[in-house]
Design a protein around this nucleic acid. Structure first.
Lengths: 342, 342
DNA sequence: TACTTTCGTGTAATCGATTACATAATTTTA
DNA sequence: TAAAATTATGTAATCGATTACACGAAAGTA
């Protein structure tokens, strides 16, 4: 029905050329004021809409940015995306979502697809199990597409990142458990090819060290971020000759599983056993036995990633800016670990 | 660094024209087999990538589809988007995300932006407070862009929809509460300009009617989908001369708020008071006092929306197909309402 | 051999907007 | 008033791919 109106249609109607129309609409200073007004009025009257695809082809900029996450249906990633979208919306960028489902193959596919679609930038949380094949990332950078890692980062030249201080997060949580009087503190970690898990682990270790508590290898379990995995893992811990009296889990879901299992065994939380998680998922606050957790301020992380992108996108591409933003984690102390204050 | 390779570069290298290259790459049957192979091999060797923007401009199809939701950081919407993305990924579509934050203005802006960006289709959950100004929707349809509503729908000619049977969901939840012996059942509803809330409400009413229970206006509270709103609302209910003994809430969050408030007042759940929510948010299952809730199968809803889009996108645009898919809700009975079986 | 088909490829327009360069129109300066 | 400077607009190329049409060459037919 609605035939598309182009600048040529406007030009024809006004007996001028498309070039003049284009200049008028773009506020080119060389255009006579009267002409500009006439063109703008006519364009509005004809319901002209700029063809973004033509513009994109000509300029090489699509006004789209790509976001790659392991999955979107997690509160953390969804919140980051929300932050990105809100920050970029006023600048006219659209956000394209891709999921990797923790597959390297999908991650590489997504990177290529986004580059092919000529997005103006890519923000992503990398997938673990790195085969150390950085070619897909290099390809992005060679095309001069700004690449920004958030949360899950990797050391690649030319890539900016926005992360939280996972070491500090791990340290804070562990220190808190120590302050509550726990001395046998277990740890659930995750995929060691991801820095976030390594750093939380290191923070945990350091807190033990700083407080004169011996680190025990058997207290560390590498587990998936899932409720069932948490149940199974705490099960193993309780079979040790000296079972732990506290747990710092790198995952809220695994922490929840642990709590469920402990309750079934009638182990009293926090009196006999303290638990702290990581991510501050909404449910940690909602539970009757609310769960202590480290907040990663995902909304802020998303906004910050977007800002870093905006800084980079207009810079001359000869100078490679590499910005590393590290946000501060915040420990939310709740019933699962607070023997005293609740 | 990496200069972009076009079909002209390939043509030049092989001393043929770009037209031939294009045809060879597109498996045009008029091309000699030898030429085709040579072109394909050369293209690969030169690391040729088709410029999607040029293709999009020529064809008028961007291979992007737009998704508009009130907000992305809700498990329900994120899951729907996940479903859409997974279903569309194999077909080469990219998903662009927009948020309305329940603002009509933003909704209209998003619709226009997406149409301007020439997406090949739009899937959305409408925002309430309809000023009955359908012009933004009409504009989409006039541009022959398939428009599909999911979950929150509106009656507009030419728009397909994928929803759940909210009436049935409301009926099931209410009937279940009746079966548990409750006779004074309150209801939290929402924005009455949204069909989902009206229909859940109607299902609630019908269940009462079918079981000989008088409907009482004062048992219905229109509340936001938030924990605090739930607390306040249940507070009002308890001040009635005959306070209810059960609640069917159209929102899990409000249901949670109600439960928190009831507990503070030492009202025993489910013995003295039964609660059922709607949406089956993850936390409803995680709580120690798990919350009965109606599941909307968001993943399936997303996939189904994508399928409806795929059906429509290739049809000749002379025939307007309008498909209405209604998914079945599923009641998950949990501790907050099960007096007997838990 | 001459004439039609068929096949493979080239030519050039097209999608819609931007922009370097050229040129016409107007104003300024001498 | 004529030349110079300025201003506004037109011309045409460009971004990269697709495709209707044209055309030469090869193959088939009489």
């Amino acid at each position: 029905m609605s035939e598309k109106v182009t600048i040529y249609d406007i030009a024809e109607k006004l007996n001028i050329t498309a070039a003049t129309v284009s200049r008028a609409l773009n506020n080119n200073p060389k255009i006579k004021e009267a002409t500009r007004e006439l063109v703008i009025k006519t364009a509005a009257a004809m319901n002209y809409k700029q063809n973004k695809l033509a513009l994109a082809l000509k300029s090489g900029r699509s006004n789209n940015i790509g976001v790659i996450v392991p999955r979107i249906d997690s509160n953390f990633f969804a919140s980051v995306i929300r932050g990105i979208e809100e920050e970029l919306y006023p600048h006219g960028y659209q956000v394209i979502i891709c999921q990797t489902h923790e597959s390297i193959k999908r991650e590489n596919e997504n990177l290529h697809t986004l580059v092919d679609a000529q997005v103006d930038g890519i923000m992503m949380s990398v997938t673990g199990v790195s085969n150390e094949n950085d070619s897909a990332f290099r390809n992005v950078l060679e095309k001069n597409v700004p690449l920004i890692f958030f949360d899950r980062s990797k050391h690649i030249d030319g890539v900016s990142s926005v992360t939280i201080n996972d070491f500090k997060g791990g340290y804070l949580a562990t220190k808190h458990l120590i302050d509550e009087g726990c001395r046998n503190i277990a740890h659930f970690s995750g995929d060691q090819s991801l820095d976030i898990f390594k750093n939380r682990f290191l923070g945990y270790k350091q807190a033990l060290l700083d407080n004169g508590i011996e680190f025990k290898e058997e207290y560390v379990i590498y587990t998936k971020s899932a409720v069932d995995a948490g149940k199974e893992s705490v099960d193993k811990l309780l079979q040790l000759e000296t079972p732990p009296d506290a747990l710092f889990s790198s995952s809220d879901f695994a922490a929840l599983g642990a709590i469920q299992e402990l309750k079934e065994r009638n182990i009293s939380i926090p009196n006999e056993f303290c638990v702290a998680g990581f991510s501050n998922e909404p449910f940690t606050k909602f539970m009757e036995l609310s769960i202590t957790s480290v907040d990663q301020s995902p909304l802020e992380m998303g906004k910050m990633s977007a800002r870093v992108f905006l800084e980079q996108v207009d810079k001359t591409d000869t100078i490679k800016i590499e910005k590393k933003v590290v946000l501060a984690p915040e420990l939310h102390i709740r019933k699962s670990s607070a023997k005293t204050n609740f």
